[in-house]
Design a protein around this nucleic acid. Structure first.
Length: 560
RNA sequence: UGGGGCGUAGCCAAGUGGUAAGGCAGCGGGUUUUGAUCCCGCCAUCCGUAGGUUCGAAUCCUACCGCCCCAGCCA
């Protein structure tokens, strides 16, 4: 699946290679620890590829760990979606599917150990008071009046917290570290809070839940994680991570290493904001093909291989960055160019009548399914007197560089004949609604006459055989590179044209039977996938994955 | 004004004291019954800035500048 070693390794892989070479570890163990409070997105894809990738490359192991320490926000449906996404992306955790909640008993014991060692205490400040006592970025905090409670009192209080004797928020367990630390994470961080909520896995077994830093460090150690890879915002938490490792009796000492998260231009990767789009009905759901979620990209038709390639091309560093969409699109096109069978479809049809073609006659024209892969075979395209062509492929008044159909001009119909435009039919307002052409019978593909050169070749569908379809044309979700900048609400930057449905699209007949999820190239238009949810043979639905590169469009743009 | 990070091309990114890889984008050309693909060529006298060390610096030192993160009983 992964071809050879990259020539240069990122800094994390260098550290790991050194640790292996230096004998510090015999086996590398990593983990991907998402919180099941939403769907995974392209940013997670990077972490997945890194963690599972490193494990696979070194013959190690990677756990898929659901970090379920906050029952208020989490849901089994998200757990299922996460599992589905990771598997679809192409990774396997063997038996290593775990949950932070698996370790609740052990984490609870660790809390007791800390209390007995005089390194944790039950605090009874209100949240507001606690914030006040914490100090600011520049001013040290103050110690809580409850900081000096005796071990016995702390043990008693903590036991009663666990027993459900107190209301939510009445007490918390805190580590006793340093209220004057310049690192705010070390100013007696909360370890446990009371939350009378039913947990999706442990039910009502607990009414106290551990906080992220505490649960995460212990979970890592229990699983024997050697390298705990996370994003930059946790850099400040590393001293706390190490404090837990120093002050608890744990079976392993993982090393936390931070890398910068993957930011993609023209989109957002904030679960909160993605959820907002869904709640407001601005997109159809977590798997809407415009969403940067793994599920959305899957439905959009991005192959997992392309996503993995994309992630690997963006690298792993500590630099903040904003990756251009063109890189992702390039990876998708590169993969689909090889994978996708070719077919013909017309999105905005314009009628062409071949005035010298026998009425009622139908020919079957052979067409290759892939220009570079003969093993994919060919199909027979029905051809007749009336055809649909793309509106964009005809211009009544055309510039010199326009190589398609124009009055008096010739063009080749792909896999068919050369035709010449001889007449136009217009409606009341002067729009061309029909183009009359003559065809040159000697120029059918395969015949000697087909050698004749014409400037352009266009795609078409036989009107008598056309299958009507819904074709969904997707574009970037946002109109600006950084929708989550501070200038305005991100929703004001939504691209109103992110989804356009072509009302009259027609397909060559073979397309109706495409399996949902199949990606094809509609020649000259782009790559399209049969929607994995809505596509039916009786009502085909295709999503545009990405357009083809279009140097004509570029010329047009430059002319404007 | 505290602490933690980061600055190599339009966007990513190698580089670890010996004279700036690669990819994407862009530009020019060739092939082509997809204006696609494919192929060829071009694209940093310079590494945030200014000094310094050195025969030699993107790599070492000093100062400065810029950007990001941290004050949830979220993760």
């Amino acid at each position: 699946m992964n071809e050879g070693q990259p020539e240069t390794r990122d800094f994390i892989r260098q550290i790991i290679a050194d640790d292996l070479a230096g004998g510090r570890h015999a086996v590398i163990i990593t983990r991907f620890p998402p919180e099941p409070n939403g769907y995974l997105h392209v940013g997670h894809a990077k972490s997945i590829c890194l963690n599972f990738g490193v494990a696979a490359e070194t013959g190690g192991r990677c756990y898929l760990r659901l970090d379920d320490t906050n029952p208020l926000k989490e849901d089994q449906a998200f757990v299922d979606a996460i599992i589905d996404s990771v598997r679809w992306l192409g990774f396997d955790w063997g038996g290593g599917l775990t949950h932070a909640s698996d370790y609740f008993p052990r984490i609870h014991e660790c809390a007791g150990d800390l209390i007995r060692a005089g390194k944790a205490y039950v605090d009874s400040l209100s949240p507001e008071q606690m914030r006040e006592f914490r100090g600011t970025l520049t001013a040290p905090g103050r110690e809580s009046p409850h900081r000096s409670r005796s071990v016995a009192e702390n043990l008693d209080l903590f036991a009663r917290m666990r027993a459900g004797e107190f209301a939510d928020g009445e007490h918390v367990l805190r580590a006793k570290i340093d209220m004057a630390s310049p690192n705010i994470n070390l100013r007696d961080p909360v370890l446990y809070r009371i939350r009378r909520a039913t947990h999706q896995r442990t039910g009502d077994a607990w009414c106290i839940y551990p906080m992220y830093d505490f649960a995460h460090t212990i979970s890592d150690a229990i699983e024997g994680i050697t390298h705990s890879l996370c994003t930059l915002e946790f850099e400040d938490h590393r001293p706390l991570y190490e404090w837990f490792l120093d002050n608890l009796q744990l079976p392993a000492r993982p090393r936390q290493i931070e890398f910068s998260r993957l930011n993609l231009a023209f989109t957002i990767t904030s679960k909160r904001r993605l959820a907002e789009l869904i709640d407001l009905g601005l997109v159809a759901g977590w798997d809407d093909p415009r969403m940067p979620t793994i599920a959305g990209m899957r439905r959009r038709g991005y192959p997992p291989e392309a996503l993995r390639d994309f992630v690997s091309r963006t690298g792993v560093t500590k630099k903040e960055h904003l990756i251009q969409m063109s890189l992702l699109e390039n990876c998708v096109r590169e993969d689909l160019n090889v994978r996708g069978a070719r077919a013909m479809a017309v999105i905005n049809p314009l009628k062409v009548v071949l005035t010298n073609y026998p009425e009622g006659q139908v020919e079957m024209l052979p067409a290759a399914n892939h220009p570079d892969r003969p093993e994919l075979g060919e199909r027979q395209l029905p051809f007749g007197r009336e055809l649909w062509i793309e509106q964009d492929d005809f211009m009544e008044v055309a510039p010199n560089k326009f190589f398609r159909l124009k009055p008096g001009g010739e063009v080749r119909l792909r896999y068919g004949y050369i035709i010449r435009c001889v007449d136009l039919v217009k409606d009341e307002v002067g729009r061309v609604i029909e183009v009359h052409c003559t065809y040159d019978a000697d120029t059918r593909s395969g015949l000697a006459g087909a050698e004749r050169k014409v400037k352009g070749t266009i795609h078409w569908v036989s009107a008598a055989h056309a299958v009507r379809a819904e074709v969904r044309l997707y574009d970037r979700l946002f109109g600006v590179a950084r929708p989550d900048g501070a200038e305005a609400d991100f929703k004001t930057f939504l691209n109103p044209e992110s989804l356009r449905v072509a009302p009259h699209a027609v397909l060559e007949p073979s397309l109706a039977t495409a399996e949902p999820g199949t990606v094809l190239q509609f020649e000259r238009l782009g790559y399209f996938v049969a929607d994995r949810v809505d596509h039916r043979p009786t009502r085909p639905v295709f999503n545009r994955v990405v357009t083809l590169r279009d140097s004509w469009a570029k010329l047009e743009e430059a002319a404007r």
